[in-house]
Design a protein around this nucleic acid. Sequence first.
DNA 1: ACCGGGATGTTCT
DNA 2: GAACATCCCGGTG
Length: 189
Amino acid sequence: MTRSFFARDSRAVAPDLLNKLVVRGERVGRIVEVEAYCGSEDPASHAYRGRTPRNATMFGPAGHLYVYFTYGMHFCANVVCGTDGEASAVLLRGLTPVAGLAEMRAHRPLARSDRDLCSGPARLAQAFSLDRTLDGADLVIADRGLSIEDDGTPPPPAPGVSARIGVSAGAELPWRFYVRGAVGLSRKG
DNA sequence: ACCGGGATGTTCT
DNA sequence: GAACATCCCGGTG
C-alpha cells in the first residue's frame, strides 16, 4: 500500500483496510476485523494521555507498525495512521488465514482449529510472530519482511460496525469494523 | 455453546 | 498498587 493510503484519519483507514492482505514471507492473512483509535480525542487510545516510551511509534509517520505488550503475555499490532505527530492507529483484530498455514500453526500450538489461528489481536500477532522487534517496521517498504498488500479485492460495501472490544473508556464509540460472516473474526458476526 | 476465572508482567498513578 | 485494546482451559447446560 502507499504512504498516502495510511496518512488519513484512522476511522477512514480502518474500513478501507478490510480485505487487504497482511504478508510476511510465506504467511498471508486477509484483514477481516479492525478497530480505530484516535489519539488525543479518544479516551481508549494509548496516546490519550500523551507520548510515552511505549506509544512513541503511534506519534510517528503513517504506515508503520505499532506493537505493544499487554496482560503480561500478549502482543498486539496496529497500523499507524494520520499525519506525523497525530497518534491515530488501527488495531488489527482478525485475519482469515490465506497461505503459510503450516508456519502459523507452528507458532500457535494451542490453536484448536485453523479458524482460530488469527481470530483475535494477540492470536494473529502470534501467528505472524509480531513482537517488540517489529515495532516501528515500515509496512510500505516491507521493512523486516512485513507488508500490507492489495490483491484487488475491494472492502465490503457495508461492513459490520460495532463498539470496540475490551475497552472501558470510550466504550460507546462505534469504531470496530469487520467483514460480516468472515472466517477469523474474534467473535461470531 | 456459553460462561467464569487464572495466568503474567509492563506501564503508569 | 491498579489497570490492562487478551487468551486458554475447564466447568456446566
